[in-house]
């Protein structure tokens, strides 16, 4: 088999894995948009905030320590204990639920019925607020995140493919774990949306919130629930990306990777986010592999958007988005 084909297969597989990580971020956007029509600009910052909180809890860091020390002249930094990863994830999730309640109570409850652009602007404010609070609570230094996920080359795949092709494929163990977790997450979300009372209520609100209200669905509860689920998805994305690069403020920029995925997959479809992520991941990696060297490389950022735009020419609502027909 020609070397270029073998290398291309390796790139393809890595593109799929990268696509899963993009889809994890995109999923959070989809959930909130689907249920409330809000494009949540703060989704990337939510991933950052959740990862910061997770590391802070694991390390026993005292929240707002710098602020407390500056005001009271104390020297507080740590509680002196370490919290196991699983327990810290549960506690972080509790914080994200609390955040969802606050967001609903103090921001969006007062904006019901407003134009989408107003809601979007509110999420921009939320993003800056959360970034600032995250800094005050946990500090801005880069933190190592280790919840026990494996990292590095998967030796079994390396050896197997070496046996087949005389070249061992590189697949990162973390990417494999991310793929499994993303698959489970999507399955759970689909089951939740299709087969549970709350899930059906969420879909009802998404279709027509006034009609849902009229049959007794609590908008407040549904929106808190959706923001909590989006918070959970943000936490999963924050763990995956934070494990790769350490937890730091640039983590919020992962949202940039989700935008072409959303354009391609549609803003309202959970499978769309996954398929869109995979297409973007594979597309950008293969383009970089085949064409990148001819044009100086670093094509991935712009190519992802070009690919999404090409799809939009043929399907403006995205691959799985709902087609909106307005009759005059």
């Amino acid at each position: 088999m020609p070397d270029q084909l073998i290398f291309g297969m390796e790139v393809f597989l890595n593109g799929l894995m990268a696509g899963v990580l993009y889809a994890l971020v995109a999923l959070g956007f989809v959930l909130i948009y689907k249920a409330s029509g809000i494009f949540n600009y703060a989704q990337g910052v939510m991933a950052l905030f959740s990862a910061l909180t997770l590391v802070g809890i694991m390390e026993g860091q005292i929240p707002f320590a710098h602020l407390i020390n500056a005001i009271f002249g104390t020297e507080l930094h740590h509680f002196g204990w370490h919290v196991p990863g699983i327990l810290a994830i549960v506690l972080t999730m509790a914080v994200m639920v609390l955040l969802a309640i606050c967001v609903q109570k103090f921001v969006f409850r007062h904006l019901v019925g407003q134009e989408p652009i107003i809601l979007f602007m509110a999420t921009i404010g939320l993003a800056y607020f959360l970034e600032g609070v995250g800094d005050l609570m946990w500090g801005s230094e880069i933190k190592k995140l280790d919840v026990g996920l494996p990292q590095g080359i998967n030796l079994a795949i390396d050896e197997t493919t070496f046996g087949w092709f005389g070249y061992g494929f590189f697949i990162d163990n973390l990417d494999i774990v991310a793929t499994i977790i993303a698959a489970l997450l999507v399955a759970v979300l689909v089951i939740f949306a299709q087969y549970t009372k709350q899930g059906r209520a969420m879909r009802a609100v998404a279709d027509d919130h006034q009609a849902a209200l009229s049959v007794g669905v609590s908008l407040n509860f549904i929106w808190v629930m959706v923001w909590s689920v989006a918070g959970f998805v943000a936490l999963v994305a924050g763990i995956m990306w934070g494990t790769k690069s350490g937890v730091q403020f640039s983590l919020s920029l992962i949202a940039l990777k989700a935008l072409p995925v959303l354009m391609l997959g549609g803003f309202t479809s959970i499978p769309g986010a996954i398929v869109g992520g995979l297409i973007i991941g594979v597309g950008e990696k293969l383009f970089e592999f085949a064409i990148g060297p001819l044009v100086g490389g670093a094509t991935e950022n712009w190519f992802a958007y070009v690919l999404a735009l090409i799809f939009l020419v043929f399907r403006p609502q995205g691959l799985f988005g709902e087609k909106i027909i307005e009759r005059v």
Partner: peptide
């Protein structure tokens, strides 16, 4: 590597 550089799989492959 394009900014911000959180994804570098292509480069390292």
């Amino acid at each position: 590597i394009d900014y911000p550089g959180q994804e570098q799989k292509s480069q390292w492959l």
